[in-house]
């Protein structure tokens, strides 16, 4: 398939996944803060969230009516939910011929929702419904990707985008617990699980033994939970091998090598080792290695000056023969 198309599909899915995660972050936090009747505390909380997303440089205090609105509707921050939806659709428009009609209609209708005033009005009047709409959109979008699109190369790029973004978001939710000044409270732990929609899955496995250790173990290492780091990295690894046809355990490009190494890192360690090294440090390393994987996917399949140079040489060789 066209390199650019692979790139567009990858980013389309990353943005959709990002919009969903962000919707959960804002929803869960807003919910938690309802009982907090202290504006200073509130401000401090949102400010630290904005920092966690490296978004503080985009905030314009004059313009933003509230921190939530910044996360949801900011024009200047490229990862606000609105901008994620716009970017996802922009990418989709460039590859419309690759998408099913059903996917396009879903993406297009949420786009028109965010383009009009409806989104702000809905958030203002019925925030619960607003968040549900965004999250549901993402889930329907994913369901349709599985059910109405050929599971071919393009689909693998969509899947790569989804799981790379998901792993990143899960690591952020977990990392937020390490950034607290105090030991995370019970409420904080529940928030982290809810942000990853992991609360009931966690409860089934740990019977309510709520501790930082258990929450971190679950979100990092669960074999079966689809938002755990291990699950996501395993998918990234297998998607990459399906793309190249090279069996897992070997590698034919840098993206495969780095993904394999990240998978080994989560496969062959445990929560005690991670806590001993420091949770924050471990998460940081994982995040960085996944960013590298993303970069190498781009260099391998989308933009490769070196590869192009080689083909150039091949061509002139053929011409000489």
């Amino acid at each position: 398939m066209l390199s650019r198309v692979a790139d567009n599909l990858y980013w389309m899915n990353r943005y959709v996944e990002r919009a969903e995660s962000l919707a959960r972050v804002v929803e869960v936090n807003q919910d938690n803060l309802l009982e907090l009747d202290d504006n200073i505390e509130l401000d401090r909380f949102w400010l630290s969230s904005i920092h966690a997303f490296h978004a503080h440089e985009y905030i314009d205090h004059e313009k933003e009516s509230s921190a939530e609105c910044f996360f949801l509707f900011s024009d200047s921050w490229p990862s606000s939910i609105r901008n994620c939806i716009f970017s996802a659709r922009e990418n989709a428009r460039m590859v419309r011929d690759q998408l099913s009609e059903e996917i396009w209609v879903e993406l297009n209708s949420i786009y028109h929702f965010f383009r009009s005033k409806d989104a702000e009005v809905s958030f203002d009047q019925t925030p619960q419904q607003f968040f549900q709409k965004v999250i549901r959109f993402s889930l329907v979008f994913q369901g349709l990707s599985d059910a109405t699109v050929n599971h071919d190369e393009g689909w693998l790029f969509m899947s790569l985008g989804k799981y790379l973004e998901r792993a990143d978001q899960t690591s952020r939710a977990l990392d937020a617990l390490t950034l607290k000044e105090k030991k995370p409270s019970r409420k904080d732990l529940i928030a982290a699980l809810r942000i990853c929609s992991a609360l009931s899955a966690f409860r089934r496995q740990y019977r309510g033994e709520l501790s930082l250790r258990n929450v971190a173990e679950f979100l990092l290492f669960s074999q079966d939970f689809p938002r755990s780091m291990r699950f996501a990295i395993r998918r990234i690894d297998s998607n990459l091998h399906e793309l190249s046809g090279v069996p897992s355990g070997n590698f034919s490009n840098e993206a495969e090598r780095l993904a394999g190494s990240a998978l080994a890192a989560v496969n062959f360690t445990n929560i005690d080792a991670v806590l001993a090294r420091g949770l924050h440090l471990s998460l940081d390393e994982l995040q960085l290695s996944l960013m590298d994987v993303g970069q190498k996917i781009f260099e391998t399949y989308v933009m490769s000056p070196l590869e192009l140079q080689n083909v150039n040489d091949d061509q002139s060789m053929q011409a000489q023969q």
Partner: peptide, 29 residues
């Protein structure tokens, strides 16, 4: 895009194509 989809062929932009020694190629994965 509509026509490309209906015909089942690729829709390309200029940057997806490259001309080398008198032939035109598209850049694929």
């Amino acid at each position: 895009t509509f026509l490309a989809r209906q015909m089942g062929i690729e829709i390309v932009e200029g940057r997806d194509l490259i001309a080398i020694d008198g032939y035109v190629y598209m850049r694929t994965t």
